[in-house]
Design a protein around this nucleic acid. Structure first.
Lengths: 204, 204
DNA sequence: TATCAATTTTGACAGTGTCAACTTTATGTG
DNA sequence: CACATAAAGTTGACACTGTCAAAATTGATA
């Protein structure tokens, strides 16, 4: 992990930050398939091997970009939740779900990166922290909906995460039939969510 | 799209099929990250450019492997459904959900390939057909659960798909907190499914 | 001012996917 | 049976990638 503090590097100015920005832009434009460390260096105006001082590998840079993605993600969901009165826990959870899917659709490449399994994931403290913050945010809202005294908050939160992530993924990866209206799926599925996680044993 | 019929080629025997098998094995062993057309050729015992006669690009080979994956996927879910009496539509859907997640966990690399957005997806008839068959299978079981007369079967089926795909994806990509027991999440979430898709307006 | 370490560049290496040109081989037609 | 023909496979090349080692440059510090 390179320096988290920015001691205003020597030659370039702040190559670490410039690379992250250039990388994020490249990712958004071209997708992960066409993401290249050398192109990041080109956009930053440095030689192809310059990034080596700040990122041990291309995966390290991607981890940092993913971490930034999680941070923006959490901000988006927070903003969406704040638009709903905090007493109305259910609607608030639904608003977060909408914002979740909206983020994925608006930032598909980085969203895919954020949820892709990477061997470097465990090595990036920043990414782990940012990812954990997102989980905590969801966990908190689920608690607000079903109450803190229950013992199954974690698995209920996982249920919510799975449903919303599934919707977002299938839309972004274009795996729903073309005839299907995404918005209807989103609204209908989200609307059943508070009851589903509150409910007891919904066995058929 | 190369010849779907197998006219017993000249030199190798059946390089098309051999490449698909070698590719599937390589994918299962090494994952998509380390999937290489040249390694497929090596395993098939041919030169690095030989695949060109059967697959226009590496993506074409991957599409074929993904199509085979969907076919096996459908067979697995069929077998799981057949183990439950057909009158019990709800439990049958749940059994399919279990098989869905089990397939993803047991065949993670090809599962990720199957649900990855690819530009070549629309060009492969085989892949499109196999993917469509999986959708039809799910659609049929959802109809059995909620009744054929309803007008929202498609969106309810999408709901089911999203939940199960979300669970599978988050497990495979290791995005659930480590403390969470996947099996509990699976059982609890699936159990709520029949009621959730039958239910009317579950708004908070 | 001179040293020194951090930063960047240069050049190289082993891989990759894809292409064009060439060689080999099986087939079916005379 | 001989042979033209087209498919199948090989060879060699190109541009590109990530990564590494060595050299060169630069800013800060003593």
């Amino acid at each position: 992990m390179p320096a988290k503090t920015k001691p205003k590097p020597y030659h370039h100015g702040d190559l670490y930050e410039t690379l992250v920005q250039a990388g994020a832009a490249l990712l958004a434009e071209q997708g992960l398939e066409n993401f290249t460390l050398r192109e990041c260096a080109r956009r930053a105006g440095v030689s192809h091997a310059a990034p080596k001082n700040h990122f041990a590998s291309v995966e390290d840079l991607l981890c940092e970009i993913a971490a930034r993605g999680f941070e923006q993600f959490v901000r988006d969901l927070d903003a969406a939740a704040d638009a709903v009165p905090s007493q109305e826990a259910g609607p608030r959870l639904i608003a977060m779900g909408r914002a979740y899917v909206a983020f994925a659709r608006a930032n598909a490449p980085v969203y895919l990166l954020m949820f892709r399994h990477s061997l470097q994931f465990d090595k990036s403290n920043h990414l782990q922290a940012a990812s954990h913050a997102a989980w905590q945010q969801l966990h908190g809202q689920v608690t607000a909906v079903i109450g803190a005294e229950r013992g199954d908050i974690d698995t209920r939160a996982a249920h919510v995460w799975a449903l919303v992530h599934g919707i977002a993924s299938l839309i972004v990866d274009r795996r729903f039939p073309a005839a299907l209206d995404p918005q209807t799926v989103i609204e209908q599925s989200l609307s059943s969510l508070p009851a589903a996680i509150r409910g007891g044993l919904g066995v058929s």
